[in-house]
Design a binder for these strands. Structure first.
Lengths: 106, 106
DNA sequence: TGAATATATGGCAAAATAACCAAATGTAAT
DNA sequence: ATTACATTTGGTTATTTTGCCATATATTCA
């Protein structure tokens, strides 16, 4: 792994890291259905408002979402919708894990 | 987000988290080309042997890779190859980011 | 059996992340 | 202008992650 590779993999890992939190992942998936304002997330997620705001900032920083303010509210939407196509594969990993562990129990 | 959702998103995030490290991501991508023994990674990555071993353990724990020992060496391979299909999308995010930032500079 | 090689594990310190609270900012309504 | 509302930011603490070192384990070879 050379210097250039290092930069590339840092960048890729950063994107994955942004999605690698249950709340952020859930929010990203919600956005696949259309934009949402912060308050809508606040209603659904059991966490401080500031916590949610910070999670959204992480997604934004990673380039996964973009936002715009309309009136008093800030709306977030997916900037690169393909991020969610990956989820079917993540689910495949989980299923495979479940099967592996089921075998162990037998 | 109800209790069940919480469990589901925890599980999904765990898989993403496992990939969300430059070294682990690089190793996973290497494996898309076929199995590798730990020593091959050790040659290519500038890190302690034990560090590499731990990274591989994280990938294994997440169900992304599986290993088997043959002689003195342990070989790792992808268990669910689709994890890498996602990378084209991660790259799309990065490109989009680069463009966004390029605009800011102008 | 004993030495050498390949890998894993335990322990620890440093760095990064997460969540909360309180306070700041920006916008709209009175 | 003042107040209320929506969101962000700063500060702090607890938790998690990372990476190194030293040590343990397993396997092969002499």
């Amino acid at each position: 792994m050379n210097e250039k590779d290092k930069l590339i993999y840092d960048a890729k890992a950063k994107v994955l890291k942004a999605l690698a939190h249950p709340t952020r992942l859930w929010m990203a998936e919600q956005l696949s259905d259309g934009e949402r304002c912060v308050c809508e997330f606040a209603d659904a997620v059991d966490a401080d408002f500031s916590t949610i705001s910070k999670h959204l900032a992480v997604l934004k920083q990673a380039g996964i979402v973009e936002d715009d303010k309309r009136g008093k509210q800030v709306y977030y939407r997916l900037k690169v919708p393909c991020v969610l196509k990956f989820m079917s594969c993540v689910e495949a990993v989980i299923e495979s894990q479940v099967k592996t562990q089921a075998v162990l129990i037998e």
